[in-house]
Nucleic acid binder design. Structure first.
Lengths: 137, 137
DNA sequence: CTGTTTTACGAGCAACGTAACTATT
DNA sequence: AATAGTTACGTTGCTCGTAAAACAG
């Protein structure tokens, strides 16, 4: 499996078209990025850039890899975001108040499925006989 | 950015529902996988598994992250495959023989675009005055 | 005592930055 | 001389496995 960081370096390199600029974008030194590219090429078994007298030129292979690499990076980022977002909902308590017993009975199947989907959120179903008692909570 | 390896560990953990089994699937020790999961949880700021008396239970956050993680892993894998596949085509020489000058003239715009798309593949256009000469090549 | 996960710790490896080197203009 | 990239090298941090510890049945 490829290292995500090297793919990140490649994408920056393809975007910037220069090792120096790509390194600057990623806030790292040129040699470090150069190393990552070399490691990726070793992994792929093919060069991703053509070494010219002045600068580099991205190869077809480099562009092809970068294409999928963007997808991988975006997905990894979404994974982290999804985790944080769901995580913020954990430990929360959802308090649902209803005045009518009938209403509560109707809610049960809905809440059961909800609980299945988000088992880590605690559900509290509160029943009251009058609206007055509800506002006290 | 999350580490791809930790996402790999999480996916295995979600699939297997056990640290021990997941570690076995990935051919690594339980402590190593446990570490990766802990590191991922530090990154996410939320637990991905609930520690029970006997084994673990994946949380909603864990499932959510694993979902996107699969996408990231697949994309990363495709990126490498794409690189290797294109790389194998590099250095290749495509020799196109045509007997008629007219045909060659028609081919030029097509080949030009082809060259733009795959600049690393060398194109040789060979013209012959008779079919006999072509088969000699 | 068995099974499962975590903690501790040491070894190996990979990523990084600084510095030196190469090559081209 | 100046610019762009690579190589060399030492340090830091990460990943891993073995061993030991916590915890529950």
């Amino acid at each position: 499996m490829a290292i995500l960081r090297s793919l990140e370096c490649l994408v920056a390199l393809v975007d910037e078209g220069s090792v120096t600029k790509a390194a600057a974008v990623l806030h790292m030194s040129q040699p470090a990025l150069s190393h990552q590219i070399a490691a990726l090429e070793r992994e792929l078994g093919t060069p991703v850039v053509e070494r010219l007298a002045r600068g580099v030129r991205v190869t077809a292979a480099g562009r092809a890899v970068a294409e999928e690499a963007r997808v991988a990076l975006a997905a990894a980022s979404r994974a982290v975001q999804a985790g944080r977002r769901v995580g913020e909902g954990l430990g929360r308590r959802l308090r649902i108040a209803c005045a009518e017993t009938m209403t509560a009975w109707l809610l049960v199947p809905v809440l059961r499925r909800w609980q299945t989907r988000w088992p880590d959120v605690r559900l509290d179903l509160l029943e009251f006989t009058s609206a007055d008692r509800m506002v006290e909570q």
